[in-house]
């Protein structure tokens, strides 16, 4: 337990090392999430548009 606490202190540089990795995680996961969302949104809109066009054609 003590070793673990010591590890997380990063030799006294915890305040610099952990934020660097935390921000890295937020940045990469954030871009991935936004990209997936824009893809899914576009897919939904496209299928909606296709069905509305088909409706338009049938009416």
């Amino acid at each position: 337990m003590e070793n673990l606490a010591q590890y997380f202190q990063m030799g006294g540089y915890a305040a610099f090392v952990w934020p660097a990795y935390g921000l890295g995680l937020i940045g990469l996961v954030g871009v991935l999430w936004l990209s997936l969302k824009s893809w899914k949104d576009a897919e939904q809109e496209f299928s909606g548009l296709k069905s509305s066009r088909d409706d338009g054609a049938s009416s």
Binding site: L32, S35, L36, S38, W39, D41, A42, E43, E45, F46, L49, K50, S52, R53, G56
Partner: peptide, 20 residues
Amino acid sequence: VIRLRAELLSAKIRTARFNL
């Protein structure tokens, strides 16, 4: 690749809207 899929779909949506 994920973003390209979204970009291509958006382009298709624009064309579909235009045709509509």
